[in-house]
Write a protein that binds this DNA or RNA. Structure first.
Lengths: 208, 208
DNA sequence: TGCCTAATAGTACGAGCGTTCGATTAATTC
DNA sequence: GAATTAATCGAACGCTCGTACTATTAGGCA
């Protein structure tokens, strides 16, 4: 799970350790809440010792984003790609995504908190974040398109609409479970997704 | 729209003006991004001059939340309460909510950004925010319950599920339109809502 | 072991933060 | 208009921030 090995040089090792701690801190307090001094405390190092591993705070923040992205890929994206194309893969993507956000209720999803933090700023951090979320939405869209091509979903379905609603269900999960601490949110996310698929996979009285 | 009048004392007048500017700033940079010095600059006042109107920064932040809540009620809640009970009222609530978020794409919805900022902090600001969002979700739930009682929605429908999915559609709208700047998001929110209502208002092949 | 370089510590700087306090100006009341 | 109170300013405090420098320690290799 973590990216260290005993064959790394000392510096790379502590750098990786700092990033692990930084990811944890950023999950809780946001990317913008990351602070060199705070990391130094948690690492029992001096500020300058921590700082020396990154050219700037901004670089550190971007490295944290990349690390989060890596974890997300490992836990959600790659396992789903092993499922067969079409609906099974799409369902796996959603299920693992829910699972991950559920685990993250205590810590927080950086894609979601980051989107709120950087919706009005510009610069490299925002660009990095937008790129990652585009990548994930793109993967969802491709899986949906394949599900349509394979006849799992109705041909006139708009993949963007599916992705939009899936994202909404996850955002609501994060909102209700993490912020409001309301129980039962996971069930509601899953019910919503089942209704979404049910709705777009079978013929109903009037088609669009 | 703003809450000033020529019969107020000078102090109350500038206090209200500061809050207007603060609300605007907080919409963009978040409640946590509010800064006395920044407000002083925008108001062409001294830091201490601004500060004197509030006992602390935290008080200022809470006042900003209350002002936002007031606007939200005026634009979304009260107009919807004039619609007839049940589905029409629920539809009005969603439509005005979408309309408000659409207008806010340039500035930002404080309920949504605040939820991300305070999902892991505690204190009076979080409490205030949670209270407001509970109030709004409660209103949505009541409208849904009435729609069920009046036969507009199927009797076995779970109001919490409806509110959850409505909230998700709005969160996705905020995410895609404001953060990703993706066009067509408003349409997707409305299509999602229509499908939601359609789905829970009519008999389908197998009921839950 | 000794050397060279990599890794960390220590200190300092300038800026911005919320807040306090006393002085000063403006508005309100008599 | 004078007296009184409200509103605003200006300077200062202690704190934390990111970053730049130099000094010191530890690691890796001959």
């Amino acid at each position: 799970m973590n990216m260290t090995s005993k064959f790394m040089r000392k510096g790379e090792l502590t750098r990786a350790a700092i990033l692990d701690v930084a990811l944890d801190a950023a999950s809780r307090d946001g990317i913008e809440g990351l602070t060199i001094g705070l990391l130094a405390d948690k690492m029992n190092m001096s500020k300058s010792g921590v700082f020396a591993h990154f050219g700037s705070r901004e670089d550190l923040q971007i490295e944290v984003l990349k690390l989060y992205h890596h974890h997300f890929e490992q836990e959600v994206f790659y396992p789903s790609m092993k499922e067969e194309r079409g609906l099974p893969r799409l369902q796996s993507m959603f299920a693992l995504w829910v699972k991950r956000v559920t685990v993250e209720i205590a810590s927080g999803c950086i894609y979601i908190s980051g989107a709120a933090e950087y919706d009005d700023r510009q610069g490299p951090i925002r660009d990095e974040l937008v790129g990652m979320i585009h990548a994930w939405q793109g993967a969802l869209r491709r899986a949906t398109t394949q599900a349509i091509q394979l006849g799992h979903l109705r041909p006139e379905v708009d993949p963007e609409q599916i992705v939009y609603e899936m994202y909404g269900l996850i955002l609501a999960l994060h909102h209700d479970a993490r912020f409001l601490r309301k129980p039962g949110s996971v069930d509601r996310a899953e019910i919503g997704f089942e209704r979404l698929i049910e709705n777009y996979s079978r013929q109903t009285a009037e088609q669009v």
